[in-house]
């Protein structure tokens, strides 16, 4: 088991994507199938941008074992009011400022769900959100 840690700063779009590109680099060095890497990176990137766009700060922990990759994204922020609604394509609570930067199209959570095998969302309004994404590596 290998663990990678990242601190994410809310509102810092300049750095958004650092965690996902580090994870990509690691998975490539391990010669994981490129199709799988792509899906993992897309999901993680979306999650990372979600923290930057919506939360004050967050943590990403990525655990890699030969069988699975588990990505746990925890943030401190406003939380998600209605998870079911947030899962709908096109639904977004992103501010105008965030949208002007090309984010906040309401595709984040649906896109994550599409690209991982399991997605768990826990959220408390006014406290924060925890996303757990799991992807099997021994796909065969």
């Amino acid at each position: 088991m290998m663990t990678l840690h990242f601190h994410i700063e809310g509102g810092n779009f300049t750095n958004a994507g650092f965690a996902s590109s580090q994870v990509k680099k690691t998975l490539k060095q391990l010669n994981i199938d490129s199709g799988l890497i792509k899906k993992i990176v897309i999901a993680l990137y979306e999650g990372e941008v979600n923290i930057v766009a919506h939360a004050l700060k967050g943590e990403i922990v990525v655990e890699i074992s030969p069988e699975t990759i588990t990505m746990i994204l925890t943030d401190e922020g406003k939380g998600i009011d209605n998870i079911e609604l947030a899962m709908k394509e096109g639904f977004s609570t992103a501010s105008q400022k965030v949208r002007e930067m090309g984010f906040g199209a309401g595709m984040g959570l649906p896109n994550i769900k599409k690209n991982v095998d399991q997605l768990f969302i826990e959220s408390t309004v006014g406290v924060g959100t925890k996303l757990t994404m799991i992807k099997q590596l021994d796909h065969a």
Partner: peptide, 20 residues
């Protein structure tokens, strides 16, 4: 494909961990 830590996933993870 270039196998930087060998071509066995279990082993290459161990080696990568060692390198880290």
């Amino acid at each position: 494909q270039l196998f930087r830590f060998g071509n066995d996933l279990q082993k290459s993870m161990e080696r990568m961990q060692r390198a880290r």
